[in-house]
Design a protein around this nucleic acid. Structure first.
Ligand SMILES: [Mn+2]
Ligand SMILES: [Mn+2]
Ligand SMILES: [Zn+2]
Ligand SMILES: [Zn+2]
Lengths: 150, 150
DNA sequence: CTTGATCATGAAATTCATTTTCATGATAGC
DNA sequence: GCTATCATGAAAATGAATTTCATGATCAAG
């Protein structure tokens, strides 16, 4: 982990950037916390250890990591951009519309069929986004329970 | 087409709304123009025939059609919401990153596999969004051409 | 170690799509 | 025609994200 942080920092140096406390704090916290973090959430976490860090620096740092290829932006239609590490390989998402929990999956048959469809349309595919929205098991069973209220 | 407009208007009446010139103009223009229209584009088109109509009314009318189930919102990550008629059945999208052209497709095998994956994860799928980003044939061949500039 | 050029920072201002407010105009049903 | 209710457009407000700007930190050279 410390290794990863140093690798990122040296790549920042190599690309003409400089080290900084705030930025290190943001990067370390990002790799420490879970997936699909929003800037607001990440800022709150960073502020616990480094109260002086503002959200603007978090915005800038995430864009920097994006340029360096360490993160991906994801958007589940909430009006905010979320970030996930690019260390793990490509995957798609199951998004619960009730509790918001996100489950990752990969299905090579679907990936294969996507390539096939693209080529059938003379289209050169580069990336794709497959999000399935619905209810996770917990939320689905809760919705089945007949009226308990009032 | 005139039929469709009347159907929508009567449903608006039934749900407690009233008729209006501006709204009719927006609805008619929407069904007249192509798919994946943004509010800005639609407003410009409407203004040609009805210059007094403001974009706020277009925003409101599209949300109304959304509530009544006539349209879907689509988002290709451009920062603006686009609308498409809900008359045609579900489909997915091939989006050209160069010229922006959007091709629709449907592949029942992919749809089938999505259900399978969801159920494997004890997830009840309701909707999904599959967008494939890349280059259409025209843009792909143009990019292959070696440096022609200066 | 000092210097000086360059980069990074946070606060405030700005942008841009979208929504809300508000005073006024249009509509429907009596 | 009257009137309650809805729809309108302009302007203001919102909220995420970016830019500006004055100041502070960093680093390579000397
Ligand atoms: Mn993910
Ligand atoms: Mn479509
Ligand atoms: Zn859930
Ligand atoms: Zn193209």
């Amino acid at each position: 982990m410390q290794l990863l942080l140093e690798k990122v920092e040296s790549q920042i140096l190599a690309s003409g950037g400089k080290r900084s406390r705030s930025r290190s704090a943001v990067i370390a916290q990002f790799f420490r916390c879970g997936r699909h973090v929003s800037v607001e959430e990440l800022t709150r976490l960073v502020k616990k250890r480094s109260p002086a860090v503002g959200s603007v620096t978090v915005y800038r740092t995430m864009k920097l990591l994006l340029r360096l290829g360490y993160v991906n932006e994801v958007d589940f239609g909430e009006g905010v951009t979320r970030y996930e590490s690019n260390m793990s390989s490509h995957h798609d998402h199951l998004v619960c519309k009730s509790c918001g929990v996100v489950t990752e999956f990969i299905d090579s048959r679907i990936e294969e069929l996507q390539s096939e469809v693209a080529h059938k349309h003379e289209f050169r595919p580069l990336t794709h986004r497959l999000d399935i929205y619905g209810y996770c098991r917990k939320c689905d069973s809760e919705r089945d329970v007949p009226e308990m209220s009032v």
